[in-house]
Design a protein around this nucleic acid. Structure first.
Lengths: 193, 193, 193, 193
DNA sequence: AATGAATGAGAATTCATTCAT
DNA sequence: CATGAATGAATTCTCATTCAT
């Protein structure tokens, strides 16, 4: 019951944050939407900032948990493609979560701490994928951190694009173009698709 | 005098928005920082939202105005490279402006209207560049709007990266990697760098 | 406790509204006078307008509750006289409430909705009295709604008059004149006093 | 031209005051509606209060000027009826002016001074009419000031009633009822209509 | 754990009025 | 006379947070 109230609050918060912004969504509104009392929110989260951080981390973890495990025997392109498609399917099934990540990635409400935790927890596999691709000779030899930033942004932009244009979700041209641009940005010359 | 007060307000707003967030920067603080009365802010901008939109559009226009004109006789790669470098130089010279654009591109404070205006006014040249590249046979044949989104995001991410890591600005590896990923995302197979 | 804070606010509001006008009486002043925090006022009343409406309706109801019950076996003139005297006694005992009703009956701060509710809730007995008088053959046969407006205004004007001229409250001439004008306005020819 | 600007301001003020209240109608809005600059309003009226008073007095005078002159040879009932009809015709032709008088008669924005001036200037003829009626033996012998208050209020209430129910303006029953209640309130027993 | 009334600092915005042009 | 940008105090309302029940 109590765990469920915590989750009810997180669920309501997500919706309101996306609709009305981080400050537009007052804690009282969130509590009401969650069907709990104002005070209850503060039993589960020390303050609003912690609620936001908890939500951010939860979403990041949910997305990470959904991805297929890295198979180091597979070809990098195939592995990347499988992950891309898994992540995209999850993104399209949870548009509010993507919007939340996008909108508040830069917010002063999110501590550097939270951002860092999220990055390490959820972007680790990207690094492995890049290294796997270099071994295979298909991924360019650019600095890791820059490549990781690009991976992140290319995926999030694509996801946002398909969320904003739902009629294009099934469009093979667009879907394949998004993945191609992603891959080609990372690929070593001669290994484009 | 009046135009100058308006600009003073925009200048102060930029600094405070980047430092304290859109909601953390109260209109009274902005006015004070600008050296004008609170009422004056609302004389020039109907409300805070309009101030934010005006600032967003002004920055977008400033950046657009700074770029070299499109030379359709040049080779696309060279043209793209010149624009990239021009834009990057401007970005590094105006880090707050880039941070502002990045942080609030997704904010609910920015109306769809404003975003759209900004896009049309300032991303037009990207479309021309893509078409020029297709004629030359070096740019991939993906849907225009998706490619434009990617151009935008790849550039902004790179700019943010170099702003956050000032010591890498002169690093040829990183600089060249950023531009390479940008170009390769867009290029037709066989025209990577 | 909570009901009492709500009532403290209504009490303070009445005094300040009458002294300083609806707009002159700032919500902060009202809260202070009531001995509660600003926020508390808005916890009990969604906004200033609702406070005003609530106050208006409460006063109307208090006045209605104070009047003697209609005795349909009595003669109409005696019944009317009893009600008039009861209402007048209440009015003189609560001058601020009468002043408030008078001053803001026409105010744009009062919604048509509130005015209508007040009318239906508190003027119902007037209608019954008129009908009783018609059966007895002593009340004129004018349209009901017009007669009700006149009853209302004749009473309120008289009450205001005696409130503004306290020394005339005990003056039989004036008191009797007021009641006579009221009755004669309504009476059928031949039944004047 | 300048006299016309003054009148433009008064005209615009009337409309806005009735629509939005005395405080809801900002001087800047009034000036805009009048087609003049903010500063111009303050050239013609020292402050907002003076604008309101000037408007109040102007309307009162306009109404007074419209009434037929008192003919002391006529029968009082006929004279009263002629004045009532003249005043009612003017009221129905200028509903906003009546609404303004009604709504702000009690406003703290109107000084006691202004109210008094208005009363003396425009209600003098009522006193004469009452005295004429007493000579004729048709008007009751109640205290003058109370009777004058009642005359004023009975007329204003009737006017407001017909303004709020435009479809009843031509209704003989209602029109005659209003005048009858007015007259009967004042008449000596035996002279009712 | 859960509740929700109470708090009061702080936010955006308004507005009468002034004054240099 | 006319203008309208500038002023800054004042206003309504919000909101994260607390705490007695």
């Amino acid at each position: 019951m109590s765990a469920s109230k915590r989750q009810q609050i997180l669920d309501a918060a997500l919706v309101l944050f996306v609709q009305q912004g981080l400050e537009g969504a007052a804690t009282a509104k969130i509590a009401k939407a969650a069907g709990v009392a104002t005070g209850t929110l503060f039993h589960h989260f020390a303050n609003k900032q912690e609620l936001i951080s908890a939500l951010y981390l939860q979403i990041k973890r949910q997305m990470a948990d959904t991805l297929p495990p890295l198979d180091t025997d597979a070809r990098t392109l195939e592995m990347a493609s499988a992950i891309w498609q898994g992540a995209m399917a999850w993104a399209l099934a949870h548009p509010d979560k993507i919007r939340f990540l996008l909108a508040y990635y830069q917010s002063p409400f999110l501590t550097a701490e939270t951002r860092k935790t999220a990055k390490f927890e959820t972007l680790g596999f990207v690094l492995e994928l890049l290294q796997m691709g270099r071994k295979e000779g298909v991924i360019a030899d650019h600095p890791d951190d820059l490549m990781m930033e690009m991976c992140h942004t290319l995926f999030m932009t694509s996801a946002a694009y398909f969320i904003d244009h739902p009629q294009l979700r099934e469009d093979a041209d667009h879907q394949q173009a998004a993945m191609a641009m992603f891959w080609n940005a990372l690929a070593k010359p001669g290994h484009q698709i």
